[in-house]
Design a protein around this nucleic acid. Sequence first.
DNA 1: TTGAAAGCGTTACCAT
DNA 2: ATGGTAACGCTTTCAA
Lengths: 323, 323
Amino acid sequence: MSNLERIAKLSGFSKATVSRVLNHSPHVSQETRATILQIMKELDYVPNRNAISLSTGQTLQIGMITSSINEIMLPFLNGFVEVAEQHGFQTIIYTTNDDTSKERQAFEDLRQKRVDALVIISCVTSAKEVESYCKYGPIVSWQRMDNPAIGSVAMDQFKGYTLALDHLIPKGHTRIANALGRTYSINTRSRQQAYEQAMQKYNLPVLRQFYYPSTYTILDGERVMRAMLQQSEALPSAILCSNDHVAAGVLCEARRQHLRVPGDLAIVGFDDTELSHTLGITTIRNPIAAQAQNAFHLLSGPLRGIDMPQAELCFELIERTTT
Amino acid sequence: MSNLERIAKLSGFSKATVSRVLNHSPHVSQETRATILQIMKELDYVPNRNAISLSTGQTLQIGMITSSINEIMLPFLNGFVEVAEQHGFQTIIYTTNDDTSKERQAFEDLRQKRVDALVIISCVTSAKEVESYCKYGPIVSWQRMDNPAIGSVAMDQFKGYTLALDHLIPKGHTRIANALGRTYSINTRSRQQAYEQAMQKYNLPVLRQFYYPSTYTILDGERVMRAMLQQSEALPSAILCSNDHVAAGVLCEARRQHLRVPGDLAIVGFDDTELSHTLGITTIRNPIAAQAQNAFHLLSGPLRGIDMPQAELCFELIERTTT
DNA sequence: TTGAAAGCGTTACCAT
DNA sequence: ATGGTAACGCTTTCAA
């Protein structure tokens, strides 16, 4: 293994100059640079990252904390990895299964300077404890945290949901069901509020008996559809789903039951994933990848001393064939 | 930020002794240890990982190369992360989108000692080029590589598929369809061979017109079911699926078409994921997490000087309600 | 433009 | 059981 010193010896220059070549310093003559680069190539030289990190105090690695990896957060993950990479940062993933001790491992890695920053997708550690790690490096969260000290790039779900309702109600839908996500999450609460407020505003019934909590997958959607049919009450004329997967399940099951969509039932998804595109499901475009970019931008200031603006994000209704 | 030297000064001992405490060396007296630990706690001391890595030449990080993250490889990913963690290693994921330059980044990180080893889930870099990086650290692959220099923990799909056939044929199934995966992968070829050999052995027809390539998801499965019904020929009496998701799709669509399962059509999945359990699909148990463990075990020798045995793995038929 | 030398924070060898 | 000190491989300041 050849190192800086070896290159320096062979080239006849000092380690400092070789280092300058490595870091593209302008204060090196063309010839010198050429000579040194030549020797590096011959020796198949590679700088040692650990030495660089030790010297600079930066690892160029960012940790990402998530309970598990699933399709919902994949656009965020991939979006973040991509923008980070563009700026020379690598992403290292901590899957925690919502285990606090595993989460602590990630926070400790921030202290130990194994990562320069942390981005939280989901985490069960208390906001207060998370905050105690802020002094070791910047931390940003996707989910909204109770603690204002921790930056967040979450979007207010209220607006997105309202968009869907303002689309459905003018079309004459009065009885609207909801397939929801995690019961106690801030997101779910916002959506529920949006629904209840809209219904009150238009003087329409709030169908609590058609709330279906904890729906995440295609199969959940199919289950919801069957459950709706088994209600003693008449079928709602529309359903808002927690995400496109659930909407896909509802759609498939509805067709299986020979219901016409949107004739008998209108369906609105959420997120605008590829699946909704494929199946032609009306949905709310949720700029998840852009949120991930914002997360990196938020980190950029403390991390690199470069302030990057937060993109102004908004939901958007994508009308397709299910409404 | 306090460091070893600071602790040494304050405790009155040398850096060497403090280091011994850190590394649980037995050659430190109880009192000394206690004193030093006490001071560490007071100063909220954390050892710097970069310094450790530079000094030891180990990062305790293992890179994982994959085209993208999806549900199929998730058990492998999670299985590997878990076993690695148990032995003090962290996993860092390189998603490459099958882009060779991104893959090269991962290999370069092995050279630069950012990771101690590499495990390949999927990669498009030529086996020859991959081999050229072997000298920088151990590399192991999940998929079978052409190059014998690179260890692999792939299992021979032939056996698993044969298991399914030996289950179906004695039950009287003579016309069997196949929903397959990547057309040119070694896995798919093995499965196809297993099918064709079994059919020849029992003197049954090889139904090439009921080969459905490139099936991966629930929706693909539903598509396959519809396609089978649209064939001019009579429906096969059974179908082997590339994975449980596809099987789930076939099952759902079959029911939607009012077919009896297994009466009109028997269905066999692959992998024994939670989904097959939930839906009661007969499937072939594929010990993916155990393969991931084997991958780590394979790395353990060159990585830690500790030889860990390869678990002898085998497929297993899990009979449920679809056959 | 270039060089010398002092860090960066550990580990590990050789003494004692 | 403990200490002194040379690595580890790079960056960065200060001089020249």
